[in-house]
């Protein structure tokens, strides 16, 4: 791959989590997008996927550390809070792994 797929602002905390979530979880994303993400997260040798998972874990453990409203603006989830969305995302993507707990 000649360049990163996700053009992430390196200064944006949780940039990979936010941009990947937007691509695959936004209501306007293509029909098979979330299924593609489920397949994609199996490739844990992929650095971006590892970053995504690490950021998802960190965000679940400390949702207040997410930058402002960026996650909501990117994903437009209707779970009621970032924390609920992130926990649902973890359960859907990693059903055989326990939710990160403090």
């Amino acid at each position: 791959m000649s360049r990163p797929f996700w053009n992430i602002d390196p200064d944006l905390p949780f940039g990979t989590l936010i941009s990947v979530s937007e691509i695959y979880c936004h209501p306007e994303a293509y029909d098979e997008a979330f299924d593609d993400l489920k397949q994609l997260v199996r490739h844990e040798s992929d650095e971006e996927i590892r970053t995504f998972k690490n950021e998802l874990r960190a965000a679940i453990l400390d949702p207040d550390s997410l930058p402002g409203d960026e996650l909501y603006r990117a994903v437009r989830y209707d779970d009621g809070s970032a924390e609920k969305f992130l926990r649902r995302l973890w359960r859907d993507l990693y059903p055989h792994e326990p939710l990160p707990e403090t």
Partner: peptide, 20 residues
């Protein structure tokens, strides 16, 4: 702007709450 959140730099209130 790429849709990576970088174009939405306004400071907003904390995200974890439910008030919006």
């Amino acid at each position: 702007d790429r849709i990576d959140g970088a174009d939405t730099g306004e400071t907003t209130e904390g995200r974890a709450g439910t008030e919006r």
